[in-house]
Simulated scan of single mutants.
Amino acid sequence: MDLKYEQRPTAIGRCEGTALAHVQPQSYQSAPMREVRVGDLSDALQYAPCFVVEPIIPRDEVTLLSGHGDVGKSYLALVIGAHVACDQRWGPFPVTHGNVLFVTLEDVAERVRYRLARIVEAYRLDPIKLDKNLLVLDGASINASLAEEFLGPRAHTIAETSSFKQLALKSKGYDLVIVDNASDAFNADPNSNRLVRRFVRQMLGENARVNSLAVLLLAHVDKDAARYGARQQSYLGSVAWHNSARSRIALTGDDGNLTLQHEKHNHSAKHQPIRLFRTADGVPMPEEAAMDGSAASDSLLSNDVDAILMAMYAAKAAGVTVHASTSGPYTPQKTLSTFPELPRSLQNNSGRYRFWRALRACQSAGTVSAEDFVTGHRNKRKKLVLTHKGEVAVAALQSP
């Protein structure tokens, strides 16, 4: 490479130096682009997109599942994988039955197995099907990564590790590969667009296309990015994480409420956001699927009952009367909504059905009852109070 230098004038207070005046342009060799004729489109429709989880996780593509560090991405990914393995619809999303490979680079296998046991219990999945169709690759115990950065002849680049080669070989015959997570898998500069594109498109994306499978890649974002979604585009630091994935979903959470947002897919319309809740064991479940008398419904109702009991206890401690009226400005829902013990998912119009369903369950169980009282204007009214049984239940909830 022919370099020419020129002497620069000395700046006041600076030492003398030289500057690069001209750099001979250098070309980088790559494979030639493929020419594609578009005259005959009669067979084009056979390449319509296919999904493992429709429409949020397409086959032959990399889907990015983003969220901040403690929102529950790993648990959610395991829930989705377990439903694919057991051929069971998850919430509003139909699944294609298939084999699932869960690559854990963050949590050791024992933690993954514990979570799967909770998922099987909460959703009443078939453990035999799960064992047959879901396999865990534990890379966390050996600090494995899938891509390593090194200095090549011309610039920094990344190379496939032995763990990635193992993953690529093992992927044959699988329908969904889940990688938890990007920051552990990608041992390179996350701010380099070029390196990120190579990892997502050429390594993970090529593995998806060659084996006709879907890849779900979990990625951390900061809480501001999680709250504002794609507008922040701060996936690990480079917009290439945002742009290289052809499909993207985001798990956001605030004050106990979870929302799964379908933020991007190049081949279909985006699905509307769905609200999730956590069971007492932390298993995420769709709210709309938890109103049908299933295990999810039982778990959601149990959580809501506990929240109402805790809010009733807080109201009693504050000396606040909880009126039993079902309309007007002093309904139980409006009164208890002033206490932090009642989650936002049970407040306002959106939480009305769940609130009253749980309150009726409390009354049926004998933990909350209505009794007469006289107002300051000597009017007879009814108020809700915790019974002795309710106070015992609250004490059990408060115990460590």
Results as ranks from 00 to 15, higher is better:
F102P: 05
S244N: 01
G39V: 12
A226E: 09
V52P: 06
N133Y: 09
L65P: 08
N303A: 09
A226T: 00
R124H: 15
K73C: 08
G366N: 10
L146A: 05
P92A: 08
R278S: 10
L342K: 06
L135A: 13
C362I: 09
Q88Y: 05
E54Y: 14
S212V: 08
R198P: 02
K223M: 04
T335M: 01
V177Y: 13
G98C: 07
G256T: 07
V177Q: 13
S337A: 12
A82F: 15
D126S: 15
A48G: 07
E16N: 11
Q26K: 10
Q272R: 11
G152F: 12
Q363C: 06
E206N: 12
F186E: 14
Q29C: 10
V112A: 07
R118S: 10
G319N: 02
T367A: 06
K316L: 04
V62I: 11
D180W: 09
K383L: 04
R227Y: 04
A324Y: 11
Y28M: 13
D255C: 01
Q363G: 04
G351E: 09
G17H: 14
R354Q: 08
G366T: 13
G173K: 12
R227W: 02
F339P: 02
A230R: 10
F339N: 01
A365D: 04
V200Y: 06
A48I: 10
G81S: 12
V210D: 13
L359W: 00
K389C: 00
V136M: 07
R194C: 03
L76Q: 10
D254C: 00
L217M: 09
P400S: 03
V38K: 05
E54N: 10
I12T: 15
H220Y: 00
T104C: 11
V320M: 01
R154Y: 10
L167I: 08
A85K: 15
C15N: 15
L216Y: 03
T18C: 07
F150Y: 15
N243Q: 03
Y123C: 05
L309F: 09
I128T: 11
S27D: 13
G139A: 06
N207R: 14
L301Q: 03
G319Y: 02
W241S: 00
T161K: 14
F164C: 02
L397N: 02
P190R: 02
E149C: 04
L276N: 02
L251M: 09
A295H: 11
P340N: 00
D254F: 03
T96P: 08
L169H: 15
A395T: 11
D138Y: 13
L359Q: 01
R246N: 04
P32I: 02
L167M: 07
R246G: 07
H220E: 01
H220R: 02
R197E: 03
E110R: 15
G256Y: 06
T387A: 06
L65D: 07
L346S: 12
F277R: 01
L359D: 00
A358V: 06
R89Y: 14
D292F: 08
I128V: 13
G67V: 05
L101Y: 14
G39E: 13
A31N: 12
R34D: 01
N211K: 14
M1Q: 14
G69W: 05
I119D: 10
A307S: 12
A314F: 04
A117E: 13
H267V: 07
V239Q: 03
T321R: 06
G237T: 00
G256H: 05
A122W: 09
N349H: 09
S74C: 07
V53G: 01
S327H: 08
G351C: 11
T387K: 06
R34N: 01
Y313R: 09
K223N: 03
N243K: 01
L260Q: 00
